[in-house]
């Protein structure tokens, strides 16, 4: 059953408004009525969250709206995933991204925005949090069979930790198994190119970069 117009409209509005309770209630109601959970994800959730991301990018929305929309999506996703498993269908994420703020850096607002945006666009994101040691990145990459590793650094003094993380991937002989990208206030495109990794200057760009990397032939 495709998504009925009334559900489509109300659920889209709930995601865009970041109304967690309403999004959960409409999702539950739609699933009980037999609406296809994959249809809800593809026809409602992804477009609504893309719109939220666009509004954030243009300055119409700020962090609270982005976070509340992300929270609404996370709650609805749990219901939808359960329904998908119960129906025997398979839901394939766009890819798996391991994300963290590098060792020594406690600034994670930018990283959190990227996590929310990536999830909104259908990526499976493993968020390692702040002050992530190089070995935690390599371990998580292997354990989660990741496609992309995203490193964030705000401070100039923590930028070398990105290089150290890249070095460890190389030393372990797994550098070519993953796409490595970085962002944050201390990172520039030139520097990222210099050390041979991808770069985006903002969250929307990070989503596009990850999509491109998933489309690109593997190393």
């Amino acid at each position: 059953m495709s998504v009925p117009e009334s559900v489509h409209q109300r659920l889209t509005e709930a995601f865009i408004e970041g109304d967690v309770e309403v999004a959960e209630a409409i999702t539950t109601e739609a699933l009980e009525a037999g609406v296809d959970p994959l249809g809800i994800i593809n026809e409602v959730m992804v477009p609504a969250l893309t719109e939220v991301g666009n509004r954030f990018q243009t300055g119409e929305y700020f962090l609270p709206e982005l976070m509340m929309a992300g929270e609404a999506a996370e709650k609805a996703s749990k219901l939808l995933e359960d329904a998908i498993v119960a129906s025997g269908q398979a839901s394939e994420p766009l890819g798996t991204v391991v994300v963290g703020t590098v060792e020594g850096d406690v600034h994670d607002i930018g990283k959190n925005i990227v996590v929310t945006m990536l999830r909104a666009h259908g990526f499976n994101v493993v968020d390692l949090g702040r002050r992530v040691a190089p070995s935690a990145f390599t371990d998580a990459a292997k354990e989660n069979n990741a496609d992309i590793i995203g490193m964030s650094s705000l401070m100039t003094t923590t930028r070398p930790a990105i290089q150290n993380t890249v070095n460890l991937f190389e030393e372990l002989g797994i550098r070519e198994s993953y796409q490595l990208i970085a962002g944050g206030g201390s990172v520039t495109g030139d520097w990222a190119t210099e050390i041979g990794i991808g770069y985006s200057e903002d969250a929307a760009g990070a989503v596009e970069l990850c999509k491109q990397l998933m489309d690109a032939p593997s190393n």
């Binding site: 020594g104 100039t156 070398p160």
Partner: peptide, 18 residues
Amino acid sequence: GSVATYMGEGIIPGTPLE
């Protein structure tokens, strides 16, 4: 202010160079 290197080497927080 903040200088990110010590004698040309990048300063890593929590290390002797910091």
